[in-house]
Design a protein around this nucleic acid. Structure first.
Length: 567
RNA sequence: CGGAGCGUAGCUCAGCUUGGUAGAGUACCAGCUUUGGGAGCUGGCUGUCGUGGGUUCAAAUCCCACCGCUCCGACCA
């Protein structure tokens, strides 16, 4: 492709809307243009890179035995009523109406559609297992689209769904997909970390995320120092440093004006870790108290798992009504909860602790010398705290918290959807069974931008060869020079012969401009053909990543590059 | 939805406080000059100043409403 015949204009300045490097480069390098918030047009160069990512995804999916299909993006809402997700996923669903006022949903994912498809196609255990996948545009009414393609209203996703006769089979299918994911991310040049994850609204029993470590990532990842444990913050388990509490007699004492953990720390010299933090949740009908150590934070996903869906943090008025005191003086001391209809869930870290301080459910008073299991009313123990930097893993190793871009997610779903949507089959004994499912997503457009986020320097993108829009940037200087023209023809012929794709900068521009743009666009190799090098009988090949330069004879360029690609 | 900020040329931004003929850089077009890391000179094109209303002889500028965009928080591939 010739630059002068393409649709490509690079930007010297990054548009003000782009905050992070990959978003700026996406626009500056002319890969994509914004239509409006969360919606992007792929320009020819960006589309080529996207197609290369897709191809790798397809190859690995096919290799893992998955079958490609293509489902409609438009879906009937009644499927979502059957699965119950029309409520659970209400926040992200786009609704549209047709001329007859019939309602439709623009699919954010396809569990319902694929399960109802399989319900019709599969009747026997002999037809299992099967894994189906598609690469398709998804729609999510994101509350806040952000960072270009990272979080868009419309995005390209690879979604796969496995159907098995039993749990053991489902595990095998799951492993096969996870294995394919590792290969896919490695091939596109991403070091994706596989982490244990929360299942969220998807439901199911087991889940892993694939995250690319990056400062700008929106997900938090917990990893173990010198170990193999890695988990998403929503799921991560860890232990904080031990505290030494001395058991004593529980005693009420006045704490006028004290409203926060920090107040108690400052004015009464009570370390945060010696306090019991009491949080109040409600679902409109029931009230729940959540107890965590004073220096800990509750983890919302864990709270949802412990309490059930639909609970939110209570507002002041609700708290006063339920407990008769304001935040700052709350607690779960058994005697103060007499006659109050609340469920108390305590974090596991509090188990066995003594000498703690907690609120008296009476403004301006706290209890000290509290022995958690003896003095507090606790209905349920659960892990509800957020892991912090410096905590210890189950195996006693130090944990650290970092950020990552979530590019893939795998769920073991069980039979939730197959039961709801009738994906049943007859087992060898002639008995009807629901299929055991798994589902597996890769954000294709997000993956593309993650590649840019990870592979760039101050001058521009440094594409991995596997997904670069073109492998070679062919830069011809001195266009009018017949010797240069002849050398260019030779290089082109050798690239064609070797099957190497290239983009030819045939613009009548000064060398500096061309070099700057070549760096910005960031194809793996730049082949420079100018009067100087041609006079010496060669052309110059420069590696974008390392800056290493080499003189190669024009007829050898194709095989030289081909050689680099395969080595 | 809550909090903060911003809407002026394709892009980056000035002008607004104190109302008076809409600007610069860059990009783009033409010419000359230049030619291995975003050169120089000359000339040119480019705008419903986000939209609607109000105040005023006069509004990019002051007032009101709306819309859009960006950032921080809850959600996710």
């Amino acid at each position: 492709m010739r630059w002068t015949q393409s649709l490509l204009s690079t930007l010297r300045d990054a548009p003000a809307e782009a905050e992070i490097a990959s978003h700026q480069l996406l626009l500056r390098a002319g890969l994509a243009r914004k239509l409006t918030s969360g919606l992007y047009t792929f320009l020819p160069l960006g589309l080529r890179a996207l197609r290369k990512v897709e191809r790798i995804v397809r190859e690995e999916m096919d290799r893992a035995g998955a079958l490609e299909i293509l489902m409609p993006a438009l879906q009937p809402p009644d499927l979502w009523e059957k699965s119950g997700r029309i409520q659970a996923a209400a926040d992200v669903l786009f609704h549209v109406k047709d001329h007859q006022e019939r309602r439709w949903i623009l699919g954010p994912t396809h569990e319902e559609v694929v399960t109802s498809l399989v319900a019709g196609e599969v009747q026997s255990y002999r037809q299992l297992p099967r894994t189906l996948y598609q690469i398709q545009t998804k729609y999510r009414d994101e509350i806040r689209p952000r960072f270009g393609l990272m979080r868009a209203k419309e995005f390209l996703m690879k979604d796969a769904y496995s159907f098995d006769a039993d749990e053991a089979g489902a595990k095998k299918s799951y492993e096969a997909m996870v294995g394919a994911y590792r290969k896919i991310f490695a091939r596109v040049g991403l070091k994706a970390l596989q982490t244990e994850a929360d299942t969220g609204v998807m439901g199911g029993s087991s889940s892993h995320e694939f995250s690319v470590p990056a400062e700008i990532g929106e997900g938090e990842i917990v990893t173990e120092e010198g170990g193999s444990y890695a988990a998403a913050i929503e799921k991560a388990e860890g232990k904080p440093s031990e505290r030494n509490g001395v058991a004593g007699k529980m005693e009420k004492f006045p704490t006028p004006g004290i409203r926060t953990i920090v107040d108690l720390e400052k004015k009464h010299g009570v370390a945060a870790q010696d306090q019991v933090k009491t949080l109040v949740f409600t679902n409109g009908k029931e009230t729940a108290l959540l107890l965590v150590r004073g220096d800990d934070e509750a983890q919302e996903a864990k709270v949802t798992r412990a309490l059930g869906a639909g609970f939110r943090v209570a507002v002041d008025a609700e708290i006063r009504e339920a407990l008769g005191a304001s935040p700052g003086s709350l607690g779960a001391v058994a005697s103060t909860l007499a006659g109050k209809k609340v469920t108390v869930v305590a974090d596991l870290v509090l188990k066995g602790q003594a000498g703690m301080i907690t609120g008296a459910n009476e403004n301006g008073f706290h209890f000290k010398g509290v022995e958690v299991e003896k003095d507090l009313r606790i209905d349920k123990w659960a892990d509800v705290r957020t892991v912090r930097e410096g905590d210890f893993s189950v195996s006693g190793k130090k944990l650290s918290v970092s950020r990552g871009i979530e590019v893939g997610h795998a769920f073991l779903l069980g039979t939730k959807y197959s039961v709801a949507l009738g994906a049943k089959f007859l087992d060898p004994h002639g008995k009807e069974q629901p299929a055991v499912m798994g589902c597996y997503g890769i954000g294709v457009t997000r993956t593309l931008q993650a590649v840019i986020e990870v592979h760039h320097d101050k001058d521009g993108i440094q594409w991995p060869a596997s997904v670069a829009p073109y492998t070679v940037m062919l830069v011809t200087l001195d266009l009018a020079d017949p010797a240069v023209k002849a050398a260019t023809d030779q290089v082109v012929a050798s690239l064609d012969k070797a099957g190497v794709d290239y983009f030819w900068d045939d613009r009548d521009e000064r060398p500096g401009v061309k070099f700057k743009d070549a760096d910005l666009l960031g194809f793996p190799w730049r082949v420079t053909i100018g009067a100087k090098s041609v006079a010496k009988g060669g052309v110059e090949i420069r590696c974008r990543k390392t800056g290493a330069m080499e003189m190669v004879s024009p007829a050898e360029v194709g095989s030289w590059v081909r050689n680099k690609l395969t080595s």
